[in-house]
Design a protein around this nucleic acid. Structure first.
Lengths: 245, 245
DNA sequence: GCAAAAGTGTTGGAAATACACCCATGT
DNA sequence: ACATGGGTGTATTTCCAACACTTTTGC
């Protein structure tokens, strides 16, 4: 399998670079992508088996060293593209992780990025390293400090999704309100009142009725909506949220 | 002046390191501290003159390359200690800045930290590079991408101060409600209703009456309060803020 | 006694919450 | 006809915003 050979070459190269960094006492810089997806009413994350022997039985985030001639964002998009084949995704920096001992092979500071993609709209390009989706709820140990990074990104997402319309990136273009609510409930780990949830989104006025209905459901089909970005963009955002802690 | 000589040695060393990084095509990693203070009812930030000739007439944040054997946080605390002599300050990571061209001498990724200190409680230790406080409102151009970093940190602070009790780090231990309100107004660039502001903080139940009063004011003195961290810690925080965007 | 800021309550409106019934569809 | 989830309205409460007068102190 070609993909496998590519990865092996990569691995070797990576190992050589890390050794060089260590010998020279230089700090390496990498980007790790926490790629969230939503499927079967669960929040999921894309993971691979770690390259390092030390962590051979652990899962790891998708990361790579940053090239000298690419921005951090570009590195994040590159990693995402290489692994998922996707371009048009939501991606944002979350936090740097730079503890001295976080990488066993060398000193590596990593910038964690959070990305949201629609699982249905993409095909995993490379299945090397057993790339696949994992339920957030069932992940315990991971390689490096990746569990900490994942938890940080999940908390970031919980907060972020309430203040910005990111969630739609995880859904198909057309979705029912039930799907939207399931998404929020899964990410926030709470139960919400259906009527109040609907009221809230309708009053925010960012959804567009497609006049279509859910197909193939064994019950009354729900209306499908689209997120209307223009409406959202035009809204005057209230600047002052109110002190509360 | 000794301080000046120290800095000159430092500068030479820094320059040599940066050249080496550039020659080897290696990415350097630095920490830049945005150190906020509050004085004369204005939000201020601590700046120095840039080391680089290119930016000799511009102001710059306080930064340094990260040592191989120190965490990012440690680097930030070190910089802060070196410049202000302070240890017990609020300090938090805000964001990484890693565009390819952001540093003219080499590729350097920087992690921006935001720090809040009480101007009155510290003496600037080293006055090299014309270290001193600048009003936020009167800063226009800065060295590197430091204006962008400063703006990002200011926005971060505006948001953060409404959700967490950071603001007290900028005030003396004992403060009047007027001072507290001035602080919020200065940071948020808004005018607030005095009665509602008081009601809000009293209802949050995080202030402790010291039974002391402002001294030396040419009008009725206000009560002095302390921030009660224990009360704050014990409060049950509401997890669910409500979707709103 | 006057200037200056401290301190204090009420009210109306908006938003959040809690809650229960009928409806449309597939089987 | 029934099982399943879709869709809707109202009453209650809580929170926020707007607003003005009296009090205390220094001069």
């Amino acid at each position: 399998m070609i993909a496998k050979d590519i990865m092996t070459t990569r691995q070797k190269k990576l190992k050589a670079i890390l050794e060089e960094l260590k010998d020279d006492g230089i700090i390496g810089i990498s980007v790790d992508c926490v790629i969230f997806g939503f499927d079967e009413n669960e929040l999921k994350v894309l993971l691979i088996k770690s390259d390092l022997e030390k962590y051979e039985d652990r899962w790891s985030l998708l990361g790579d060293l940053v090239n000298n001639q690419e921005d951090l964002n570009q590195a994040a998009y590159r990693i995402l593209k290489e692994r998922t084949g996707m371009n048009d995704v939501y991606l944002e920096e979350v936090k740097a992780f730079g503890e001295v001992g976080r990488h066993p092979a060398a000193r590596v500071v990593t910038i964690a990025y959070c990305s949201l993609i629609n699982i249905r709209h993409h095909q995993l390009k490379i299945h090397a390293n057993e790339l696949h989706w994992h339920k957030i709820s069932s992940i315990t140990k991971m390689a490096f400090d990746h569990k900490k990074i994942l938890d940080t990104c999940h908390e970031w997402l919980q907060k972020r999704i309430q203040e910005h319309p990111l969630g739609f990136s995880l859904l198909p273009k057309k979705f029912s309100l039930r799907e939207l609510q399931n998404l929020y409930e899964a990410i926030l780990c709470v139960k919400l009142d259906r009527r109040n949830f609907r009221k809230k989104f309708f009053s925010m006025d960012v959804l567009e009725d497609t006049r279509e209905f859910e197909p193939d459901v064994p019950h009354r089909p729900g209306k499908l909506y689209k997120f209307n970005y223009e409406k959202y963009r035009k809204k005057e955002r209230k600047k002052w949220f109110g002190i509360d802690f």
